[in-house]
Structure formats: C-alpha cells, structure tokens
Nucleic acid binder design. Structure first.
Length: 560
RNA sequence: UGUCCUGUGGUGUAAUGGUAGCACAGAUGGUUUUGGUCCAUCUAGUCAGGGUUCGAGUCCUUGCGGGACAACCA
C-alpha cells in the first residue's frame, strides 16, 4: 500500500511511458556534491527520486557529483551515504561517481573539438565575465573562438598534461554569445585545477564543469529521468545541447535522459543553503553539522527525528514548480504523529520541586503499574516506585492559581499519574521567596486502578520518586533564527537573526529510574512534556537527553 | 527594462473543460488518570480585466505580482 501522492513528475513519467520512451525503462538518480552534509531539502529530493524508483519497481542510483576537488571531501561522501541509508533507502549497486567518467568525458570533449564545437580560450575570469554580456545585452566572441581544430586539440591535450597553470586556459563550448540564455554563451567545459582529488588522486589537473558532466553521466548510467531543482531550469537547453553533440551521427540510444525540475524545499525560520550551514559550523555558532538545531539529516537524527517522520514530511509537502515556504509546524506535526504511536511514555521532571506526602509512611515504597503507551497495548506495562517524597514540575504548583488552572495549589487536589490523588496542605518558601517544598496528604483509597475514593479531580501530574530518581542533563531547543526568512533580507546578514535562546541546558532534572540505561536515539515521550531522546553525549551516570519536540499544549497557548 | 518559470484559504498541495477537495495552522465542543491522543464542528481560496465555451481554477489574451539566469560552484 504505497500512498505516494501524485505530482506532475509522476504524470510526466507516465506520459513518457505511454509514448514508449526509453524502452519502458525507468531509472532515477540522486546526485549530491560531496561538499557538505545533507539537509531536509535533500531529503525531499531523496524521497522523490527513490520514491519514484519504488513506485515504478525500478531503481535509483547514488552518484556523487565530484568534479570540483577544491570543495569536496571524503567525510562528506561517508556522511551522505549514512544519511540516505538512515532515511531508509538503498541505491542500485555501488555508489557511482562522476569522476568515474572523467576519461569518457575527456574523449567527448575531444570529439566536440574535432567537430568545431569547442575551443581553448585564454581569457581570464574577469575578461570572460566582461565579454559575456548581461541577461539583457548580448556578449562578444572570444578572440580565441576561431582557432583551428589542430591547435585546439594540441592545447587541450597539453592542458591535460599539466603544461599550464590554474586559470591559464579553459575549454569552452562554441555555441552562441548572443543567446538570451546566458548558459549558452560559450560555457566553460573544462578548467585547470592542480589539486588532489579524493578519488582520482593526481591523475587529472583538468576537471569538467557541472554542465559538461551531469547530462553525460546520466546518459552513461542510462538514467531516464534526471530530476533536479528549479535553478537548473536554464541549464536544460545546455544539458540537451551536449547530449545532441555526443549523439550526433550515432544510432539512437535506447535511453535518452530527460531533465525535469521541481521547486526546492524552503522552511521558515531556517536557512537551507549548504554554504550558510557550513558557515554556522565553521564559525562555531553550532556544535557541528549534527547540532540538533541544524536542518541537516544528521542534526534532525540527533534531535530525535525518525526516518519515518521525515519521509512523512516529504510526502506531505508535495512536489510542484512554484516557490514554497513550508511551515516548521508541519515538520513538528510529522514527528509527533510518528512518535505518538511508537514512543514509550516515561516520567521526567525537568524543573523539580519536592513534594512530601505527610501521611504516607516513611520508608515505604510501592510499585505502581503504568502503561507504556496508551496508543499501543502491545508495548505492555512497567512499574514505577512511589514513596513519601517525590518531585513534581515547578510549573505544576501555583501559590495563587487562576480558576482554570487544573494543577496543584493551596488546598487543591490532583491525581498523580498512575498513583494517588493528593491534596496540598501547605508549602514552604526559601529566603528568595521561591517555593522549596510542598506538603500534601494522600487518599489511600484513591490508588490508580483501585480507586474507591469517589474523588474527581481535573488535573493529573507526572512525578518521580525522590529516592529513586536519576539525574540528567536535558537540552531544550528553540528555532535557530528569530526571523521567518533569515536569508531574505538584502541589507542584513542571516546571522543577525540568530536566536540567542535556541539552546537551553537544564541540569539536575529528575528521571524515573528506568531511563538510566537507555541508548542514544531511543525515543521517549516524557509524559505531559514532549518527545525526547538520549544524546550521543549521554553516559551511564551522566545522562543527556535532547528534546525533539514538545507536545501540543493548548493550556500554554490559551495563556499567551 | 531581455529570456524562461510561476500565481488556488494563513501555509502547502489536489482538481488534466463538468459539484474547488485534502493536510498543516487557527477556533469551538466532546472523550480522557498526559491541558497529549482521539472524535465532531467551524473559519478561510482560484491575482485582475477581457475573450472562447452550454460550462473556465483549467484554454486564449492583456496586465499585475513572485522567482530564476551575468561562478574557471553544483
């Protein structure tokens, strides 16, 4: 039962299939450049490409677009694979690399030179920019545009041999310097970069540009549908032009890749460009690519998001061609939706205040049975220790509570979840006027599951037994940026909108003893608070939890 | 003052010439030993004008709004 939402890309593929294109074959690809970690925007693309493969019972390749050794690193290659697998997808065969095709690409470049469709140009970057024109004015031909084929061949071969320095020469396609499409104005095919490449080592000192690489790599792999984001739309004529050139005079191939663009994902209160995310990492504004405030896959994972929740999100945002900004609330909804059904309910008190149950026998401990997840009976039950002194949330007591406050206050009664009903008899304050201890009585005949007291209360509180509680550090997160579109302000840097309170670390939190032995990335609902999971920094005796997302809180909302 | 893309509730996304639907967000009520979940109800939309048609969100046209394109990045 694949409930894949339909979108225009599926419709285009269906049309191609109906026309008998590509021999009925479907093959997609996910083509990251290994120059950063994957983020939630990539997750949309991954779910789309792998989702199409799954829907059509076809496959999806993973191909690293590694044509720029100045930016790419093995660390990124590894993290990308880990993230895709974690999301629940498996690519076809071994990971592929554009660098696997360097020799073939070189031969195709030679072919273009021989056809008089490419030339070696000696203009520098500024000169090229200057003669390129603007979107509204045509460019001018390079003085090197009409070199002989022989000279171009010789020069290009010497470029490969390393006879020239970086930037000294480039290979350009000879198309049309007056084209209204800037990308058709004799685009650069190869540039000289004397730099070690993470896979080909020092074998090459010339590297093909994206435009001369991507379409041909798709062709080599027999990708049928090359799906990318909207900014590549203006590249499509060039994508097709290069394919036309290398296919000219050949018999028609079985598969001719087709580029289709869709609108990238934008999230409010978030930046999504790898360049900006890298800056946050490099400047130490966040702790790393996997900082739980980052919109990276690794950040979301550490934050406690599940692969299922991210896939659900990708499914719900849809795929179209118009620009969009998705509300962060939808992402949060998806993770709540998933975790609600799966997360074990436990008790944790983030900001503890002690309650002494004055009529409860000193030294007595009762084990209270409690359900692990009311949404899933199969998750069973467990026992919680109850004793004379417990902790409750400081928020759950008010000296002068308003009428609609259902929690504890002088003379008020509440249910302790899975335990007794208590009544507040008295409380103490410290020198600063802070409530330091609350004294309550309990109703022995109100025990959960065996309540014969007949008392009705409006509120139920979570709690932990003071003597049995384990301490933990809990990290709470708020959005990283205070502005809905931090990178959309012309005169301001996106970092001007950083939220100084995006991380708050709580120490001395009190957890029920069950939590002492949990593993990182196990998901829990801290009853009445939200979803949490143990951080990778967590150690036995020094527990650390991350708040993934809070529960919906209509009380807090109505009090705003 | 170019070329291309794109305009459907607050935010997304369907409707492929035939009843504008779904989700999130928001509001209200019910259930509840989580102020959660769940259930019910409500709010709110085709950018504007003209045209074609029995019938237009959809096709044509003219405007207007938004976006992309001038890296030896991808």
């Amino acid at each position: 039962m694949e409930e894949v939402k339909t979108n225009f890309i599926y419709q285009e593929i269906d049309k191609d299939l109906a026309q008998g294109k590509n021999g009925g074959k479907i093959l997609t690809r996910f083509p990251p450049e290994p120059n950063g970690y994957l983020h939630i925007g990539h997750a949309k693309s991954i779910c789309l490409n792998f989702g199409i493969a799954k829907h059509y019972k076809a496959a999806c390749n993973l191909r690293f677009d590694d044509t720029n050794p100045t930016k790419e690193e093995v660390e990124y290659v590894d993290s990308i694979q880990e993230d895709i697998r974690w999301l629940g997808f498996e690519w076809e065969g071994e990971p592929k690399y554009a660098s696997d095709y360097f020799e073939q690409l070189y031969q195709w470049a030679v072919l273009l030179i021989k056809k008089g469709k490419a030339y070696v140009c000696e203009l520098n970057a500024e000169q090229i920019a200057a003669q390129k024109g603007t979107p509204t004015t045509p460019g001018q031909d390079s003085p090197f545009r009409n070199r002989s084929v022989e000279e171009n061949l010789d020069l290009f071969e010497r470029m490969r041999k390393g006879e020239f320095k970086d930037g000294e020469k480039i290979l350009r396609a000879k198309i049309d310097m007056a084209s209204p499409n800037m990308h058709m104005r004799d685009p650069i095919m190869y540039r000289i970069i004397h730099r070690h490449h993470h896979r080909t080592g020092d074998q090459w000192c010339i590297y093909p540009m994206y435009d001369f690489t991507h379409g041909q790599s798709d062709f080599i792999e027999e990708i049928t549908h090359s799906i990318c984001t909207l900014e590549f739309e203006v590249h499509r004529p060039l994508y097709n032009w290069f394919l036309d050139q290398i296919l000219e005079g050949e018999s028609a191939p079985e598969v001719r890749p087709r580029q289709i663009e869709f609108a990238r994902l934008n999230l409010n209160y978030t930046v999504m460009s790898k360049r900006k995310l890298l800056e946050l990492v490099q400047k130490g504004i966040v702790s790393g690519w996997d900082d739980p405030r980052m919109p990276t896959i690794s950040g979301l994972r550490r934050r406690g998001y599940t692969p299922e929740s991210i896939r659900m999100f990708a499914d719900r945002v849809g795929v179209a061609r118009r620009d969009n900004v998705i509300d962060l609330a939808l992402l949060e909804y998806c993770v709540r939706e998933d975790l609600n059904k799966r997360a074990m309910r436990v008790n944790a008190v983030l900001d503890p205040v002690k309650v002494v149950i004055t009529n409860y026998p000193e030294g007595q401990v009762e084990m209270m049975e409690t359900v692990n997840n009311p949404e899933d009976e199969s998750m069973g039950t467990r026992e919680l220790p109850f004793s004379r002194e417990i902790y409750i949330e400081r928020d759950d007591f008010m000296e002068e509570p308003p009428k609609k406050y259902f929690r504890l206050g002088p003379g008020r009664e509440v249910r302790l979840k899975s335990a007794y009903i208590i009544k507040c008899e008295d409380y103490k304050k410290d020198a600063d006027g802070r409530v330091s201890e609350i004294h309550c009585s309990y109703y022995p005949d109100s025990r959960s599951g065996a309540d014969t007291s007949g008392i009705k209360v409006k509120g139920t509180l979570h709690w932990v037994s003071a003597a049995h509680a384990v301490d933990a550090e809990i990290r709470l997160y708020d959005r990283l940026f205070m502005d809905e579109a931090p990178d959309a302000h012309k005169d301001k840097d996106f970092k001007d909108f950083l939220n100084p309170e995006s991380l708050s670390t709580l120490k001395g939190c009190k957890l029920e003893p069950f939590l002492a032995g949990v593993k990182p990335l196990d998901h829990f609902q801290f009853q009445r608070l939200g979803y949490f999971s143990a951080d990778k920094d967590s150690r036995p005796g020094a527990l650390v939890f991350n708040k993934t997302v809070g529960l919906k809180d209509s009380w807090a909302r109505s009090n705003k």
